[in-house]
Design a protein around this nucleic acid. Structure first.
Lengths: 257, 257
DNA sequence: AGAGTTTTGTGGAAATTTGTTGATTTTTTG
DNA sequence: CAAAAAATCAACAAATTTCCACAAAACTCT
């Protein structure tokens, strides 16, 4: 059974943290008249409960105030995304034409594209547009309309039509899942429709995906395996997924090789 | 797998950077009472996380990399722009509807608008769109098309038509010059046309301008003094300019008062 | 009161962070 | 263009924090 004293202290700790943003372990130990080790043990349960995060020497709120879910997603698997983006940039030459779909991985990819010059970029993502629009003599075409709060990108028929007017060399897609049976999948119908149109508009069709998407099923199928030319990922796919990719002749690039 | 612990200092560094645009390593070391080497190490993880970029001797927001003229302009008079933005935000309430024109001052203004919730924002700037689209339950409508490399914003007839379809409470404009005789002026015809349409679409028309624009002549006249309701600036205008503003009944807000 | 359980404190080893030094690189200056 | 100044990097030592195992203390229940 839990003691009352313990839960009272946890509440006090939470109060201190939410009041000051971060509090040092030493401070807490002094103000609550317990040893630092006790504070650490409390911090452990608080962290497992997801109420706080432990830093080195102090405790803090789990996420920065005002941080968007999108920004948070950008941080998940950040190293993998960065590695994939670096690898994918090698496919692009100065002066290339490309369509870049919305997504956290493609946003990182866009940042890495600052190492290329004179690109012509078509996108529906305000983040990608901003990243590339003002630098290196790039030309950027962005689909307008209402930007979905989820990711700051335009969808719907106008956006699809906008994309359809272009014919480019490469298209780079982010996906929500990559399943051996169902193929590349997105979380919403609108995303999938736009991605599908983008695929038709390019000669060389590339999917950027970290391994956490492998075998995952999302809501809507984007396309068949035969509509993709290349997969750039951080770890090699295995089993039936690998079979399907090979069968469809999809080239596979593994970041860091 | 080594999970890097984070220092509570990282948040403070991010705050400083987003506040001033760029901060020198030396300044940070002094204000946080740690060695410069420690700041550099913090900067490294922040950079790998994509939150900042390291310059030689200082740290900056990620989009200030490269030599884009737009980013350079963002740094000029950074303090004044920030102060003006803070003042202007006081005019906006949660849930307001607004049009925000492209510009360096309005971009800073958009950052400050993260202190408001549930806004409906219409803009032609990819930077402003990206700043506000994914947070606080805002609704953002962005004009699409080719983004001018100069500032990452859409112009031309389609953009003007896009803006014309809205009717909002406030419009916020950046300008290139504010002259007693010629009124508010922009650097290009396209910018001026779009700004003029934006003015017609709002009840409350606000110009954001630092004092360096006072008395300056740019290429194209945007509108008459009587088409403006308010000027937010960092220093009081003087002489004939002040006369004209007063004569037209333009309210004047001075940042820091 | 006393056995069993839970919570807390203590000590030393392990891990992480920080400061310092000197070499290296970049930027500025004459 | 070369020298001087400033900033970064690499490596090691010092300081701080955490982790782990076990003992002491507090609490529960009969």
């Amino acid at each position: 059974m839990k003691s009352h004293k313990l839960s009272a202290r946890l509440g006090e700790i939470m109060g201190q943290i939410s009041l000051h943003g971060t509090v040092s372990v030493t401070e807490l130990a002094e103000s609550l008249n317990v040893s630092e080790e006790t504070i650490r043990r409390d911090a452990k349960v608080l962290e497992e409960r997801g109420d706080i995060i432990k830093l080195h020497g102090s405790l803090a709120m789990p996420h920065q105030v005002g941080e968007a879910p999108y920004d948070k997603r950008m941080r998940e698997n950040a190293e993998a995304k960065r590695a994939i983006a670096r690898k994918a940039v090698q496919l692009v030459e100065d002066g290339d034409t490309l369509i870049i779909d919305t997504g956290t991985t493609t946003s990182v990819f866009a940042q890495e594209l600052r190492n290329r010059r004179g690109l012509t970029v078509v996108t529906n993502s305000s983040d990608i547009a901003r990243t590339l629009a003002t630098v290196n003599g790039n030309k950027v075409y962005m689909a307008g309309g209402e930007l979905k709060a989820d990711n700051g990108a335009a969808f719907g028929p106008p956006a699809v039509e906008f994309i359809a007017r272009f014919k480019v060399r490469h298209v780079f897609l982010s996906i929500a899942g990559l399943h051996a049976e169902h193929g590349p999948m997105d979380a919403t119908l609108e995303e999938a429709e736009l991605a599908h149109m983008a695929l038709k508009a390019a000669d060389h069709r590339v999917i950027l995906s970290d391994h956490s998407k492998f075998g995952k099923v999302a809501l809507v199928k984007v396309c068949g395996f035969d509509e993709v030319d290349r997969l750039v990922c951080d770890r090699a796919p295995e089993g039936p997924l690998l079979e399907r990719l090979r069968g469809a002749g999809v080239a596979i690039d593994i970041a860091g090789e």
